[in-house]
């Protein structure tokens, strides 16, 4: 338990904006997309309100890719996981903690940034609420996919670019149900998104841990 807390403390200090490894870059990127979109399609308020929710979802998905480069690679190269293994801290535990820290470092701020983004796109209150709930349900899944892919590509050259490409198809189900909830009167889309997220969060630490162990053999 104390090992888990020590890990969480370290991961948060590395990943949180203002920490040594993280940054507010994904957040600025997210807001930039919401700001540029009205410039690109013109000031048609109806069009913006109808498509704005989807744009926020796409921006969130792409913003979730940005922190992946440093998520696993640095620690793998520095031998942190080797030292943890010698202390009987399993890769699964380390990855589960990192998933939590990764989500905490990007999702809550993204949800806050959704409010100005929704205002920029002229979304009404009900749509904004659906987007927020959908992102709350979907971001854990995005974090899980990102972590697993980051671990898989950590030992490759140019792995970061590849990670970005690999996350996109895996994140499509989250996008379909999360953004799809905007065009439905009920909450089934959000619930589906949450279910996919839970499944991914359960699988990701094991996939990522296996990838880290496999990287030792190279």
């Amino acid at each position: 338990m104390s090992a888990a807390l020590a890990l969480l403390r370290r991961d948060l200090s590395l990943l949180m904006p203002g920490g040594s490894g993280g940054g507010v870059l994904p957040l600025l990127f997210f807001l930039a997309v919401a700001m540029l979109y009205p410039f690109a399609v013109g000031p048609d308020a109806q069009l913006l309100a109808r498509t704005g929710g989807g744009v926020i979802w796409v921006a969130a998905l792409l913003a979730a890719i940005l922190p992946l480069e440093k998520l696993v690679t640095d620690d793998l190269e520095a031998g942190v996981f080797d030292q943890l293994a010698l202390r009987n801290v399993s890769e699964e535990l380390a990855m589960a903690i990192r998933l939590l820290a990764h989500w905490l470092a990007f999702a809550p701020l993204l949800l806050v940034a959704t409010l100005p983004a929704a205002a920029l796109l002229g979304l009404d209150e009900a749509t904004t609420r659906t987007v927020l709930l959908g992102l709350l349900a979907g971001t854990p899944g995005l974090a899980a996919v990102g972590l697993a892919v980051a671990a898989l590509t950590a030992s490759m050259r140019g792995g970061a670019a590849l990670a970005g490409l690999m996350v996109i198809p895996l994140a499509v189900p989250i996008l379909i149900f999360g953004a799809g909830a905007l065009s439905r009167p009920d909450t089934s889309g959000i619930l589906f998104t949450a279910a996919i997220s839970l499944g991914l969060c359960a699988l990701a630490p094991f996939a990522a841990a296996a990838a880290i162990r496999a990287a030792r053999e190279n």
Binding site: L14, A78, G79
Partner: peptide
């Protein structure tokens, strides 16, 4: 318990 010191430092470079 086994302690290993190798060329990989396992200390965060920016801290």
């Amino acid at each position: 318990a086994i302690g290993l010191v190798d060329e990989r430092l396992a200390l965060d470079a920016n801290q």
